[in-house]
Design a protein around this nucleic acid. Structure first.
Lengths: 211, 211, 211, 211
DNA sequence: GATGAATGAGACTTCATTCAT
DNA sequence: AATGAATGAAGTCTCATTCAT
């Protein structure tokens, strides 16, 4: 009878046995509706109606409505991480890698508004999120950025008098803050020029003064 | 009577006739509960019980539970804005002003966790927020930062080859991203040293290269 | 979603798929409580408690409390109409039919006080009632009476110098006015003798003077 | 804390010391609103706003909202009774008196829709009504009709084989039933011709067969 | 004679969630 | 693997009514 504790979100493990159709249909439906509606305003009834499956299946497959949201976010996150890591493999040097990452990040926010909205607007207000497996994936991404910065410091590309965490905060925070308004008010973004400007600013701040 | 549109949350105007005690009691109660509970988990019953007033007064004075939240945020925001503007009056030069502002901002997130949580976690997922009078106050703050940067550009303190908006995004985004984790996981922050590091980074990025 | 207009009380259609137990339980409960309490004094909580089902089911099955009342009235009305029509089939001649109908009507008011109270006291003050499907049933009954009178006029049993509507008003109004006090103050009625008196009076008034 | 028992309606006595203005304003306001709105949909706030006085005065002057309604009805009833009694003084013979009364009654329903609606639709569903002083006035009217009928029986104008109560029920019920629809759906009534028809019918039924 | 704040209560509405089948 | 009924819990909303001043 008690509300399930927040921590009981059991996002399904990443590799899954052949999904029963209903599972995928529900995730598809939520993605589709999130394009024009905020999560709180979406009802289970709506999701399952669009999915064409029974409402209770949300509970069978995703623990609850939040779990479904987290699953959708997780799927997007895995795709994004995979893509970024692939792109980074072709780069040499921390600054080059950062530029690539920043651009990919902004492009993602611009090109996948559903992903962006979930990440920027929909999950943060739910305390259980920060204990979820999904959040661990987001932290993985944060560590990836941190690793690049640390590599840059080691390679003398990046100044070593400032905590690398702070540098990462600036990069990710800058990107997020910039993208927030376009995502909220549905404006497009010229991702390349913005990435260029942000890199220009950040690199000027973090680059090691040679000589 | 038509249902009030989300945007009509009607935050009370700033200067108010002697507010009835109940109004203040409700706002106090919500502030108090937000210290240990997220907004969604707080019920109207809980708020009014702690306030020691009748539940329906939430609707009389704040339209609904969200409106009460927005009012609380607005009260904090007004205090913060007033404080920052006062401090800025004693500063000369854009960089000095930015340093003052960044430090005040971080100190606020550190010292007033309820304010910080509302701003960083609780309001963004509600679409009506971005049409509220409360959000306009937040934008006022954003413009304040922008004005300082523009002043700095005019005075040749800050480089003019990057949009001032981008600079602002970096500053505010950096602050927010840094403060996010401490706010979520209830860690303290050594606001001075962090402000110092962020200023150091940002100023290196935005300062006009002389010569 | 727009608030449902009063007229959309949506009484369920007469022939229904196997009604879920809860639906019937709620109707039963209201009938039971109406025996000793007026509709306005009955709360949703009381109805659902006696029904042993959840309060919200009132809204699922009947739109609202009024809708439940109308449904109960409609069920009674259908039974009554069916019974009267069956009895009338065995009668020949308008006056004979009227006598049968008048007696059945009074007997119903006497024997089913809940039905009587709803019809005489509880629905009239609600404007939406007169646009409801339930009210249409009541009008159907009115037309039935009218048809008998018209038949009587055609067959020269009933005078043709007075509008048949007026005759119907007299019959139905007389019955209602007579039954009002017994219903309100819970007195019994000797329906046969009263029906006899009313018929005697009315028939004397409406009969065609032969010769 | 308990709801006042229905019987505690204390309609003000008929002759009153010079009414404070507010009292009359409230009654006027209710009369005015009842012209286009049913009693349940009218709020105290609305009444007092239109009256231009404070809401609480309803309680000072009329015990509660119902009391105000009853007072308005009572005022109308007194006027009506006075008028009818005056008209009757000029008539001789029971049938003549009944004709006068029936016509006055229908004319009242037609000419004063607020009075009609209160009497036909708004008070009956409130159990306390039947214990109120106001209802006693209505019964007074009923007795007046009865007295005329009894007089007619004594004078051999009216048949003596039927209870006079039954005759009264037929008269008053017939009038009410006829007027119900016009009042509900706001149609006008040609009171004279209707009165004529009803009298024609009723008199044919109740007249003593001479010879 | 009057006011405005506060109260209590109940209707209404909507959901997420659970459960029996 | 799925379904539909039922539940519990709040938020929302609106009032009549009371009370202190």
């Amino acid at each position: 009878m008690v509300k399930p504790a927040v921590s009981s979100l059991q996002p399904q493990s990443i590799a899954e046995t052949p999904s029963p159709p209903a599972r995928e249909k529900l995730a598809d439906a939520l993605r589709q509706i999130l394009a024009y509606k905020d999560f709180n305003s979406i009802t289970n009834a709506e999701i399952s109606k669009i999915a064409g499956v029974n409402e209770s299946l949300i509970y069978r497959y995703f623990t609850n409505k939040r779990g479904l949201l987290h699953q959708v976010l997780q799927d997007y996150m895995i795709d994004f991480l995979t893509k970024v890591q692939k792109e980074l493999k072709e780069r040499r040097g921390a600054l080059d890698k950062l530029r690539t990452l920043i651009q990919a990040h902004i492009q993602m926010y611009d090109g996948n508004r559903v992903f962006a909205k979930i990440l920027l607007l929909e999950v943060r207000n739910f305390p259980g999120y920060f204990e979820s497996e999904t959040y661990q994936l987001v932290r993985t991404y944060g560590r990836l950025v941190l690793d690049i910065i640390d590599e840059g410091i080691e390679q003398n590309e990046i100044r070593n008098d400032i905590s690398s965490c702070r540098i990462r905060d600036l990069i990710l925070g800058g990107i997020e803050h910039f993208c927030m308004a376009p995502v909220i008010f549905d404006h497009t973004v010229s991702s390349e020029s913005v990435a260029e400007q942000l890199c220009n600013l950040i690199f000027a701040g973090i680059q090691k003064k040679t000589g």
